[in-house]
Computed example of a mutant assay.
Amino acid sequence: MARIEFTPQLRRFVDTPVVDTAAATLRAGLDAAFATNERLRGYILDDQGHLRHNVVVFIDGRRARDLRGLSDPLGPDSRVHVLQALSGG
């Protein structure tokens, strides 16, 4: 099963479960995480359902490509890391 993990920084604001899912796409995997804590959705997705600009997702060490449709495929052994992007200088 694919495993989805969220950055520890999000824990200051909302529970961030580690989710094991049989989802075939990033969107389905995130939906599985949101099913355990719906408040998490607002921190990850904007009101159009697209990945927020300050959030970065890596699937098996590679940055997710479809930031709107979230259609990137997940394999049965995929590891997904959802991070808050850092900015500043």
Rank of each mutant, 00 (worst) to 15 (best):
A32D: 15
A35R: 08
V55E: 01
D46V: 05
D66F: 12
Q48T: 11
Q84F: 12
A28C: 03
D72P: 04
T21M: 07
V82R: 03
G69W: 08
Q84I: 14
D66G: 04
F6R: 03
T7M: 08
I4T: 05
H53L: 06
A33S: 15
P17R: 14
G69A: 15
R39I: 00
H53R: 13
D60Y: 11
T16L: 02
A64H: 05
V14L: 10
A22K: 11
P76T: 13
V82C: 09
A35Q: 08
F58I: 00
R79V: 13
L74H: 10
D31K: 08
L51Y: 05
D77V: 04
A85N: 11
R52Q: 14
G69Q: 12
L83E: 11
A32L: 10
M1Y: 09
P73E: 15
R65M: 08
R68T: 07
D46W: 08
R41S: 07
L74C: 09
L51D: 03
G89L: 11
R3A: 11
G88Y: 14
F58W: 10
L86H: 12
L40P: 02
V14F: 03
L86M: 15
G89M: 08
A32H: 12
R3T: 15
P73M: 09
A85S: 15
L67Y: 06
D31M: 07
H53Q: 10
G69E: 14
